[in-house]
Design a protein around this nucleic acid. Sequence first.
DNA 1: CACTGTTCCGAAATCGGTTACGGTACCGAT
DNA 2: ATCGGTACCGTAACCGATTTCGGAACAGTG
Lengths: 344, 344
Amino acid sequence: MKRATLRDIAQTLGVTVATVSRALKNYPDISPTTKQTVLATAERLHYSPHPLAVKLRQKAYKVVGVVVPDIVHPFFSDVISGIIDVVEAQGYHVLLSQSNESYEKEIMVTQMLLATGVDGLLVCLSNETVDVGHLRALQEYDLPVVLFDKISTGLDASTVVTNDFQGAYDAVTHLLEQGYTRVAHIKGPPHPENTRQRYAGYRAALAAYDLPFRAEYVAECHAVTHAEGAAFAQQFMALPEPPDALFSVTDSVAIGAMTALREAGWRVPQDMAVIGFSDWAVCQLVEPSVSSVAQPGYDIGRRASDLLLREIQQLRNEQPREHHHLVLDATIKVRKSSQRPAVG
Amino acid sequence: MKRATLRDIAQTLGVTVATVSRALKNYPDISPTTKQTVLATAERLHYSPHPLAVKLRQKAYKVVGVVVPDIVHPFFSDVISGIIDVVEAQGYHVLLSQSNESYEKEIMVTQMLLATGVDGLLVCLSNETVDVGHLRALQEYDLPVVLFDKISTGLDASTVVTNDFQGAYDAVTHLLEQGYTRVAHIKGPPHPENTRQRYAGYRAALAAYDLPFRAEYVAECHAVTHAEGAAFAQQFMALPEPPDALFSVTDSVAIGAMTALREAGWRVPQDMAVIGFSDWAVCQLVEPSVSSVAQPGYDIGRRASDLLLREIQQLRNEQPREHHHLVLDATIKVRKSSQRPAVG
DNA sequence: CACTGTTCCGAAATCGGTTACGGTACCGAT
DNA sequence: ATCGGTACCGTAACCGATTTCGGAACAGTG
């Protein structure tokens, strides 16, 4: 069964396609009679306008491109879910690509999206990305770009990020309020802004409690794995004055540390409290359950989409485009791993 | 900066768009001279063909639609990742939608994808879906559809699924080989074929070892949650002759059961072995690490995409379309939770 | 010089819609 | 009878490419 076109309807009725088009779109100067018959035969032939023809004429793709480093990651799935919900409600669709944390692939993918045709782009930069010339090139083609999570100051674009500083600050403050005083931190790799902000939040919380910063209480991840967490935990336990709490840049590292602690006979949270970051589902499944800082992934997706769709509209109406920089709060989820049992 | 068109090039060179088009596409009857100048100015103007115009002419969207119940699910992220990798390598793109496990939403979403324009569809049915009339309607428009994971026999389409029967059979056999004899099973909801196959595999493995089927060793989930797993574990422990091993339909349920076991003072795997299904990342993070059956999500995505792209090609070449039904083996991942310690 | 055969390129149709513009028919008013 | 106005619909340009057909220019041959 072939797809019905305007001409099919026009020919069966003995009118022109223009008339049919107007009848279907409720134009004023169409007689009620012809409108009725057009609608009827359109219904009968299961007519629906050919998407490409409409889009070509309208110069609108009704599609937003999404580039994430890695789809198989709970945070990004959350973001994508938020994006889809907002964007589909506005009649747009989502074209999805991943960069696999590779700068090369990111360039390839953005080029492909440009070539395929999108009205705008939602991008989370890869960890490798420093230069954003490829995105600036897109902007020169009047293609709105909104960055989220991993952003860059080198681009004049709207951004939506988690408040990593505040999340870290709250997490460490929570530990300090529980009475822990020697809080260690396993940082992430030096480059991404996120992990730097978490580190900054850690130091700020210590400072707010007039606690000294102790370099031996800070370790720096590279692979950000379970194994690294375990290794650093052992390193901390071997210190002459070991820490009594740990704030980890990521949940997997935190859980790795907890495994090492348990194997060494340390109890969590009695001997060492642990709090992670990201609030993966696994935090609720392990024993003891792991406190963590939840990133508002779904909301990031929603807000970023809102901003992008607005910019697309502004471009279309030739209005000046505004850029916004949203910072969404993270919320700490307190579970067993950081709740100091009542003394006595 | 506006996008350069064929006409822009044609006008600056004083030729027609037809010449430019042919020069750019290496047609034979173009003089080397003009081909050179055309290529040069195309380069200079950063020309790239307008995707919509090409697609309209070619009657190809170069897009495949993907419908999954829930993006925020490690299995589906894996599948999507596989789809993207295959499809992008062939110059196609992925239009992503989710049904949220709702039959209504699934219909809406497939309609939207049809209206937006896709060359084919990769669909995992929602749990609610029984009738597949909405997909059959798509096929009548000559739109190839490939089902994966949650499939339906009511549709004449290629399918790609995990061998749930074999996965379950292997898992239970593994338990029996370890010397466990009283293997319990927590089933999933009755409707999805997957969970029925897992149940069948469980029973077949028991039968292969000449072990009796004991109804009190089988429980049926509804929400398929951590809490349900814990509740059923307590139920099993309260039996006069409790099981010594558990095969669970899903990892989260397995881990819930393990939590309840530990709280009751039962050791895993000494007092009860546990093996789950799906092999979520969390299995490697909890203590003891959880054995599980890994579903080949990434491969399912790849194979399903291969089938779909082939059907799209066949349709385009007016060749007869073939349907295939792939069943990909699951592989058991043996970890601590199911390895019986050497006795003595 | 006429005829045939290349070589290279333009004209125009096409994909399926949208829409500015113009024209016909019919009405009532002068 | 003429004019202005309205209701309705057709014509055609357009979006940006692809592709068939045919024609002009030129070279080679008898």
